[in-house]
Computed example of a mutant assay.
Amino acid sequence: MIILALETSCDETSIAILENKKVLSNITISQILEQQKYGGVMPSLATKLHLKNIQKVLSNALSEAKISPEKIDYIAYTEKPGLIICLQIGKIVAETLSLYLNKPIIPCNHLEGHIYAKFPGLALIISGGHTQIYQLDNHLEFILLGETFDDAIGECLDKSAILLGYNYPGVGRIVSKENKNLNANNLACSLQYTMAEILTKKLKNAWLNSQAKTIIIGGGVIANKFLRDYLTNKIKKWDKKIKIFIPEVKYSTDNAAMIGILAYYKIKLLSSIQY
């Protein structure tokens, strides 16, 4: 089974080709440099850049995977959540390919995709727009246990970076600017540590209630090395038998490979096709 997956929910244009669960290619073009001067993602600019980059990404994904379009069996794309006009780009491209190739189309949830970068277990998603904890008892069965009331962790880090005089994105940045009234270095360190403590506390409460044997942490913010190390070390102290799955950085940020993996399970489990 060959799946072509598209991800355009925010500021990454990404297309992946998968053979069942094996990633043959995962091509992503980020818009960070173009969006920096606005201090965050401007939807209208993001849409223009998706349109500019999508053909190149598609061509490179097919080339790297050494797959011709005719061999594709399914087209998957990110349906929600995300920036509406950005999501529309992926949907239109997916529908066009589906019609042209006469292949089924699989709409996918972006957050479920972050979870399916590694599965199964108790899942913590920390991304630019979402901070959520899910319980996963079976494939495609997601129970939301808790989420932030206001800004997600990623938004807080990015806004803090701007306030301290640094460009978007704030994830993983080392703040060294100081002035007479503020030690920005200490403030940045304290902010990051406090976030890690809160995440650990909430995740541990969820684990104590579920006694999950596997914990998955996904989303763009887990590209932050401090958070990766801090959460990993804390979880290991709860129970040495817990399996911790944190995707590689390239699969932590928005990417089409995770959407392809999610689509694989949706196809396999919902269509009763055996592979």
Rank of each mutant, 00 (worst) to 15 (best):
M1R: 06
I2K: 13
I2S: 06
T8Q: 05
S9C: 11
S9M: 05
S9H: 07
S14H: 00
I15P: 01
A16Q: 06
E19K: 15
K21A: 13
K21W: 10
K22T: 12
N26S: 03
I27S: 07
I27L: 04
S30M: 08
I32L: 14
Y38R: 00
S44A: 15
L45N: 11
L49K: 12
V57E: 00
S63D: 10
I67R: 03
P69F: 03
P69N: 05
P69D: 06
E70Y: 11
E70K: 12
D73S: 13
D73K: 08
P81R: 05
L83Q: 00
I84G: 12
I84Y: 13
C86S: 14
G90Q: 04
E95R: 14
L97T: 07
S98K: 13
P104T: 04
P104G: 01
I105E: 07
I106W: 03
P107R: 03
N109Q: 08
A117Q: 02
P120M: 11
A123H: 05
G129C: 05
N138D: 12
H139M: 09
H139K: 15
L145Q: 03
L145D: 00
F149D: 14
D150G: 04
I153T: 13
E155F: 00
C156E: 09
L157I: 02
D158R: 06
A161S: 06
I162E: 02
G165C: 08
G165D: 10
N167P: 02
N167I: 04
P169E: 09
G170F: 01
G170V: 01
V171N: 05
S176Y: 10
S176I: 10
K180T: 13
L182M: 09
N185V: 15
L187I: 11
S190I: 06
L191I: 14
Q192K: 15
Y193A: 07
T194P: 06
L199S: 09
N209M: 14
I215A: 08
I216Y: 03
I217S: 04
G218H: 09
G220I: 04
F226D: 10
R228L: 09
L231M: 12
L231D: 11
I244T: 01
I246R: 03
V249A: 14
T253Y: 05
N255K: 01
N255E: 03
A257M: 00
M258P: 10
M258R: 10
I261D: 05
Y264E: 04
Y265C: 06
K268Y: 14
